[in-house]
Design a protein around this nucleic acid. Structure first.
Lengths: 231, 231
DNA sequence: CGTGCATTTGACAGACATCAACTAGTGTGG
DNA sequence: CCACACTAGTTGATGTCTGTCAAATGCACG
């Protein structure tokens, strides 16, 4: 039962969040009132702590209540590929085999609902709402992955522009985005280097497409052009 | 009812397969005896014909019985990104919205089981086997997409090597692979140009990792090295 | 007000794309 | 059945984009 009690091991409630920058990601509205709300239990994770790890047995499904998490894969040669960012409402952790193939870590303080796979599978057989919710969540994950695949065969500028565009849609705080992730996270997600990410952001700024107040606080000044640059 | 009767419009039974090259993809063993075998109906598609298209209403789920298909997205600037290759047994076509976000076309003659989404969803609520099969298929698609995301942040040589490695696993004809797709298809899947695909294949051949009998008939001579080159 | 990490900027090198020409394999028509 | 035509695939020369290495700057926290 490796993953049975992640809280007590990885993020004891009450511990202050280490090195948390003053980022208002907590302002993201948690998705509410799904049919899963009464299942499982909610567990808090501190920034940087792992929800689960590659090769670990997969017995739970995870629903993000608040905060942001990232799923990544470490290759033998030390490279890290971030496969997805998870936002409130996202359901993840389904596996075809017995074990997880990705690691997932919280990149901000996050509250996560853990539900036993067996429990949810049983519930889906009797409760149409649960089945529907599961279906929608999986289909969403498939679609986001497909979009990311498209993103990864674009130029660096297009990837960065597309990334900002997606983030501005997923964090609907008018035209300003508080990025919860570092440049390195963005780079590992977009399959480019941090230097290239930085350069492309600078170029977008020079083109007056965006305004960079602080490194992680970015305002979309010309959404139309940004979208077009994302192709 | 755009997609209601694809056969009669797109691939009338009895018509000879246009320009079919002498490729033995029909040798791939169709997956057998799933719980879906009695649902829907089986429809033949000729090489090059569309199973469904981007923006079309999504009312069906598709299960490939035999042959090979590819899912792709066309962008405004004319670029084509192939998101996935589907092989016998694969289930696809689930969408979160009302319409498809990808187009899917057969790249060999293919037999495809079409099942109404509403039918299969209803069946999943009463039949545990159907629910399980659906779950497994979706999870497989998620995993394959995740692996493709990893693939797309590698070097060209690694992408090609990884591609060959995957194909040799998915078409288990001992060490020889009959590729059903063109170099252009491979390029659009791997996010590189046909010239680069060709050069990397040549390099792998020069390294004695593979042997290229004909352009699409490739023998893996050194599986260990191929896997290592795929990183 | 420093200290340390995150981010940006610069110079240069390497990988891949592009443009162009050539070769080989496949289907067609005599 | 063979020759031709056409498309698919390969190879070469060159340019551009992105990676790499190095250094400077800025921001958050103590």
């Amino acid at each position: 039962m490796v993953a049975a009690e992640p809280v007590s091991i990885q993020s004891p409630a009450g511990i202050r969040i280490a090195k948390a920058p003053s980022i208002a990601t907590s302002g993201v509205i948690p998705k509410e009132n799904g049919p899963l709300d009464r299942m499982g239990r909610v567990v808090p994770f501190n920034r940087g702590s792992e929800l689960y790890s590659q090769l670990e047995p997969a017995n739970y499904l995870y629903q993000l209540i608040s905060g942001v998490a990232q799923a990544y894969r470490l290759t033998a040669d030390g490279h890290r590929q971030i496969v997805a960012f998870y936002l409130p409402g996202d359901l993840f952790g389904f596996e075809v085999g017995k074990n997880h193939t990705l690691s997932v870590e919280a990149i901000t303080y996050a509250r996560v609902r853990l539900i036993r796979s067996s429990t949810i599978m049983a519930a889906a057989l009797t409760d149409e709402e649960v089945a529907h919710q599961l279906w929608i969540s999986l289909a969403h994950e498939v679609r986001r992955n497909q979009e990311h695949i498209s993103r990864l065969s674009k130029t660096a500028r297009e990837r960065v522009a597309d990334f900002l565009w997606e983030m501005s849609k997923r964090f609907p705080n008018d035209g300003t985005v508080e990025l919860p992730m570092s440049r390195l996270d963005m780079a590992d997600y977009l399959g480019i280097t941090i230097e290239t990410v930085s350069r492309m952001l600078t170029r977008l700024m020079e083109m007056s497409v965006i305004k960079i107040s602080r490194a992680r606080k970015i305002t979309i000044q010309d959404p139309g052009l940004l979208k077009r640059l994302a192709t």
